[in-house]
Amino acid sequence: MKTLEEAYAGPYRQSLARDRRDEDDLFTLVVLGEALGVPDPAAYYTMELMPYLYQDFHAWHRRMGIPRSPLDHVACC
């Protein structure tokens, strides 16, 4: 029953998940902007957000269509 409900909710969850991921990707882009060569007026403050992003970093750069890690020193793949 639980599984059926989950399956029923699947497409809805997916559309919410997509929009959530868009927000998260934007966040990552802003925070990692400096490292990607986008001047960041707040680099000092963004750096303290970076630890929270590394975990999802691999999925992010692949989603952005960057096959390998764009950060010279983060050799995640």
């Binding site: 400096e34 490292a35 001047p39 960041d40 007026p41 707040a42 680099a43 000092y44 963004t46 750096m47 970076m50 630890p51 929270y52 590394y54 975990q55 950060l71 010279d72 020193h73 983060v74 050799a75 995640c76």
Partner: peptide
């Protein structure tokens, strides 16, 4: 927050950010 194996890479990245003009 990060696993041990990522420490070195993360630190190097941090050093780069520290050199950003706005920092």
């Amino acid at each position: 927050m990060l696993p041990e194996r990522m420490h070195k890479a993360a630190r190097e990245h941090l050093d780069l950010a520290a050199q950003a003009p706005g920092s």
